[in-house]
Design a protein around this nucleic acid. Structure first.
Lengths: 147, 147
DNA sequence: CAGATATTGTTCTAACTAGAACCATATGTC
DNA sequence: GACATATGGTTCTAGTTAGAACAATATCTG
């Protein structure tokens, strides 16, 4: 194997994600939601709701974890569970009225906060970044499937 | 604000990190360590040990969390705490003999596993990826400092 | 239709996580 | 040297995390 320097790259990936998480999480928490809770509220916004499975795929939260996070949002009356008419095993998660209000209060603010950081990037830079990330994601996904 | 598409970019960053984490974590767990534990073992390898502060900066684990992770490694006799001769507040964390053995058993294996995924990338691609990530990291770090 | 297999969501466990409050020790200022 | 302030680790709390085992429902195959 050629001595390619991939270790610094994955360390930078971790640092990058961490830096984003730190920047974003601080703001989200100040709005009264954990990052996971915000992810769910944001994903459910402007939809008729979706199943746990769909919600897990969108938010990258595994199903065992998702149950707990949704439980807490149900306790705060921000979302509700509805039995799926299509599939007896399935639950549909929907924003309540309070949840919609929370979405409308937090989502634009979060977008705006993110924009403050990324507005310095040109569209070209954003595109390049997107492409590079997509490529790296694909590599890990492929290898994970393989073994 | 111009309608730049930064939302897909940060979602891709999350997906990318997640894909890496999944690929890497599965392997590390099969070696008998959690990802955080492996991070610490890997960071301490080939050093004389370092303080909690340094260790936290290298691994991106916050200090409150670090205490617990190190506690578990101490319980497994893979690392030890040594009082710093320089600073009465400071603890130095060092690999034990068992810890060194664990490092030698797991670190090359992890590098090799990672290499299997990334060997398909050319050095040029790796460089570009590194540059793009470093740029994005810098943006979030700067903004986090600012507020 | 019946039995085998797969899928959806829940439960359980062990661990990690950030953040805040706290204690002990250092450092800066007078 | 005394006091204010900063720093290194620990403790505590609420929450997230993955993974495995599980129950209920679907689907597939004969």
């Amino acid at each position: 194997m050629e001595a390619k320097e991939f270790l610094p790259v994955v360390r930078e990936l971790a640092r990058c994600y961490q830096a984003f998480e730190c920047y974003s999480s601080r703001h989200v928490r100040s709005l009264g939601l954990t990052p996971s809770q915000f992810d769910i509220i944001a994903t459910l916004g402007n939809t008729e709701g979706m199943t746990f499975k769909q919600l897990g795929e969108m938010t990258l939260i595994t199903k065992g974890t998702l149950t707990g996070v949704v439980d807490r949002l149900v306790a705060r009356q921000l979302v509700k569970r509805v039995a799926s008419p299509m599939d007896g095993r399935s639950q549909i998660v929907q924003l309540t009225d309070d949840g919609v209000a929370m979405f409308e209060r937090t989502f634009p603010a979060a977008i705006n906060h993110l924009g403050k950081a990324l507005d310095g990037m040109t569209s070209t830079e954003l595109d390049k970044t997107h492409t590079v990330l997509r490529n790296l994601t694909r590599i890990f996904k492929r290898e994970t499937k393989a073994g």
